[in-house]
Design a protein around this nucleic acid. Structure first.
Length: 440
RNA sequence: CGGAGUGUAGCUCAGCCUGGUAGAGCACUUGGUUCGGGACCAAGGGGCCGGAGGUUCGAAUCCUCUCACUCCGACCA
């Protein structure tokens, strides 16, 4: 993509309304525009990141055996009356009346709807287990939206819903998601720490929050620093191995990790030096809640011995749009964002310091063509801006690599390869630069 | 939902107290000079001062109401 043609409305100054760093940087980098309190439009740069995050989530859900569906944003109130949550949910639920005076709502979550789908289709215990997920916009009419996309009213979320014949099966479904979550976040360059959590209004008796550490995190967390040394990409991926998954879950839940409200100072103190006190951002939450919805909504199926079975359910959420902000909170510096390669909006930036200079244009053009051909997804800054402005833009938008072509290098036949993280710079040939990035 | 605050050019803000025909920097347009960390010179374009009502000869400025947004708190993926 040529930057001269790309829609990237960056801001030199920070809009007043943005307080935390991820919100400021997202506005400055032209990723999002606020349309109302807690409601955002996603511009090309932000949309690319959002899509990449969603794709990683999708791949890991699929790998763990979940199947993608897509449920609507607008739901009929009737469904929620069945579970009793229409009245329980309160003002957080955005209620809408259609032209026929039917009561509708903009879905804050989908347990009722997915249970209805299951009820309409599942007949026998042989239909289970199933895990259905979707990635969809949701709306919760927060009293006080803040922190940009991290606490918006409208947000993109992945939520999965598992159905099993019995508690043991449900436990396995839970463990699958548990491991899938560790892998998902690890692929984004994040260490997400599972912490035992309250089940809240969704109900149930087994629940973990996945929390990433960031200085600006919304809640205080306490964690065994040895957890951070674990290689999460090393996890088993045989999702049918019941004992193996349980062992993995047991291992990762054996580390001390607690949010403020669950913190046990006495137990934590035994860790001594290993106790890490930090702040965290919740990016995922998984629940096992048994038959809460299946029982309330009459989801039953034929069991193996002719009896009725009420399926055991769980639900598993990942805040996809929140992750965009969370990633920035976890990875930035004074100059801007530092994207992990797996979610970066472009693979690298190419900076032509002297547009109009024959040697620079030729070299940058060649580099751009070759980088594209190599699948490096380059963003080529071919604007006639000053060098400083171009460097500032590149640092701000945080692409993992910058390939700088200037008069100096053009004469010597080299480009400067700068790694955004750390800022290390090396002069090398075009071929060496491309090889360096391809190998990274 | 309680408390506090802000709405003036695309962005950051001044002007408001003490009413008198709307400003700066950045951004934008044109021309020129520059060119390795948000360049310089010159000339331009752009705002019914969030909205409604009121006071006044006259309102961005004073009064009333309203809408929006932000921050602190309680609450949440």
């Amino acid at each position: 993509m040529r930057l001269s043609q790309f829609f990237l409305p960056t801001l030199k100054e920070t809009p007043t309304e943005a307080q935390i760093v991820s919100h400021r940087l997202m506005l400055r980098a032209g990723m999002v525009r606020q349309q109302a309190a807690g409601i955002y439009s996603w511009l090309p740069l932000g949309h690319r990141v959002l899509t990449k995050i969603a794709q990683i989530v999708r791949e890991e859900q699929d790998r763990a055996g979940a199947q993608e569906i897509l449920m609507p944003t607008i739901q009929p109130a009737e469904l929620w009356r069945e579970s009793g949550r229409y009245d329980d949910y309160g003002k957080e639920m955005l209620r809408i009346t259609d032209r026929h005076e039917r009561e509708m709502l903009y879905g804050p979550t989908n347990e009722e709807m997915v249970t209805e789908i299951a009820r309409a289709s599942f007949r026998s215990y042989r239909d289970l287990p199933k895990n259905l997920y979707h990635i969809q916009w949701k709306f919760r009419d927060e009293v006080r939206p803040r922190f940009g996309v991290m606490r918006g009213r409208e947000f993109l979320m992945k939520d999965a819903y598992s159905f099993d014949v019995d508690a043991a099966g449900a436990r396995h479904s839970y463990n699958r998601m548990f491991v899938a979550y560790l892998r998902t976040f690890a692929r984004m360059g994040l260490k997400a720490i599972p912490m035992r959590a309250d089940t809240g209004p969704i109900g149930g008796d087994l629940s973990h929050e996945f929390i990433i550490l960031a200085e600006t995190g919304e809640s205080a967390v306490y964690v065994d620093s040895h957890f951070l040394d674990q290689n999460l990409l090393d996890l088993p991926v045989d999702y049918d191995d019941v004992a193996g998954l349980q062992a993995a879950v047991d291992r990762f839940t054996s580390f001390y990790a607690a949010t403020d409200e669950k913190h046990d100072a006495t137990a934590a103190a035994q860790l001594g030096e290993r106790l890490l006190s930090a702040r965290g951002i919740e990016v995922g939450h998984i629940f096992y809640f048994g038959t809460k919805y299946s029982a309330a909504m009459g989801l039953t199926l034929q069991g193996p011995s002719g009896d009725k079975v009420v399926p055991e359910m769980g639900s598993y959420g990942i805040g996809v749009s929140r992750l965009v902000g969370a990633l920035i909170e976890a990875s930035h510096d004074d100059n801007g964002i530092i994207w992990p390669a797996s979610v970066a909006p472009f693979g690298c930036g190419i900076v032509n310091l002297r547009v109009g200079d024959a040697a620079c244009d030729a070299m940058a053009g060649e580099l751009y063509a070759k980088a594209k051909a190599a699948g490096l997804d380059p963003l080529y800054d071919d604007r006639t801006e000053s060098a400083g402005a171009k460097f500032a833009t590149m640092d701000l938008i945080g692409l993992p690599w910058q390939l700088v072509v200037g008069p100096r290098g053009a004469k010597a036949g080299t480009v400067e390869v700068k790694e955004r993280k750390g800022g290390a710079k090396l002069e090398m040939s075009i071929e060496a630069a491309l090889a360096r990035l391809a190998g990274a």
